Simulated assay, not measured.
Amino acid sequence: MESTPKNLKARWEELKQTQPHLRIRNAADSLKVSEAELLATRCGSDEVTRLLPAFKEILQEVESLGKVMALTRNNDVVHERKGVYANASLENPHVGLFVGEDIDLRIFFKSWDSAFAVTDTVRGKARYSLQFFAKDGEAIHKIYLTAKSNLDKYQALVTKYRHEDQSDLQAVHAWDETVEEHPDENIDVAAFQKGWINLEDTHDFFGLVRKHKLTRTQALRLAPAGNYAIKVNPQAFRKVVTLAAERNTPIMVFVGNKGMIQIHTGPVKKLLDHQDWFNIMDPDFNLHVKEPHLKDVWVVRKPTKDGVVTALECFDAQGNQIVQLFGKRKPGIPELTAWQEIIAEVEKETALQESVNA
């Protein structure tokens, strides 16, 4: 049978009959379509409105909604942070920023393609959101209204940016930015290591890796001798978060996908397990990590003008970075000693091997 929005919607309804609590992302996987395609089957109803692809303009107005919940995820980690979208910087054609105390985002517009306003019913109550998708139909970012949001402003925004096309068909296109890993012998390892040792800002590391045509995990394998990159057991993630919670050490939690990085800065408190998920469940910050999918975890140290900056970087089986932890810090301020102590303690307990060049 040819796949059409009509029969796709019917298949989704059948699936919901057998799995009523299935989330749309998982339903899309089951039906072998993208989330955007599945969501679009509800366009033209009161539930879903396709919006103009005026992403920067829409984001510029989100501050008027008041306190909302920002959600960014990848396949294995979900990052939810409540707050106000403040201090927008959206003039750059490629990269946008929100640098508020609560909502802290790095936005990569190259992959962005579509936007929708969505009204779901959750436990008998309407739940309103703005949802943004990549060219391949995968969700990039979602903004949910809270009890403290301005619903009138939301409805005015949806009316203002309503697309004239409210059809139930959503076109998607393959989008793959996977970097091919070159053999180690083709890499100028000495030059790469020298560049790492001479770093003055952590943000320059991405450019260094790209310059030498490395994948991220390959770069960590080829780190300079010493403790620049130490591979640890995946349990290190849980141990670091647990110690940070116990010792009230504020941390930074980065989660990203092809179009967004979302950051939480502050303490973490309430930790819970649910099936395969390890969770932080604080009032304004929730994190959900599918722990079995943490395959490669590294302690990574980079020199800067402010001293060494230490991260815990976590990757899936395909080498995609899925979550990254730092101690709370700002430019010009040295890294927290309490964070360095946590990392050193967990590293000693969970180290698997040092850099191949150590």
Rank of each mutant, 00 (worst) to 15 (best):
T265V: 07
R123H: 13
V158S: 10
G327T: 10
R106I: 06
R11Q: 13
G96R: 01
V240D: 08
K302S: 02
V232Q: 14
T119G: 03
Q170I: 02
W12C: 04
L145D: 05
P183Y: 05
A171P: 04
Q340S: 12
D104A: 05
S129V: 04
R247N: 12
S34N: 05
G44I: 10
Q275H: 07
D29N: 08
W196H: 08
G83L: 10
L271K: 04
P183M: 09
S149A: 09
I103K: 00
L90Q: 01
E35W: 03
K258T: 11
I197K: 14
I342E: 06
A134D: 09
K6L: 14
E164P: 11
L97E: 00
T72N: 05
P93G: 08
D46P: 00
R162C: 15
L271I: 14
L130A: 09
K270Y: 07
Y128G: 04
N150Y: 06
F192T: 07
N75K: 07
S45E: 15
Q275Y: 11
W196E: 05
H79C: 07
R238T: 13
L169E: 15
N286C: 15
I197Y: 01
V255G: 04
L220S: 12
V299G: 03
L243M: 13
R42I: 00
W175P: 00
L71E: 14
L271M: 12
K269C: 07
V48G: 00
L220R: 06
T215N: 11
Q218C: 12
F237Y: 14
Y85P: 13
H141K: 07
S129A: 10
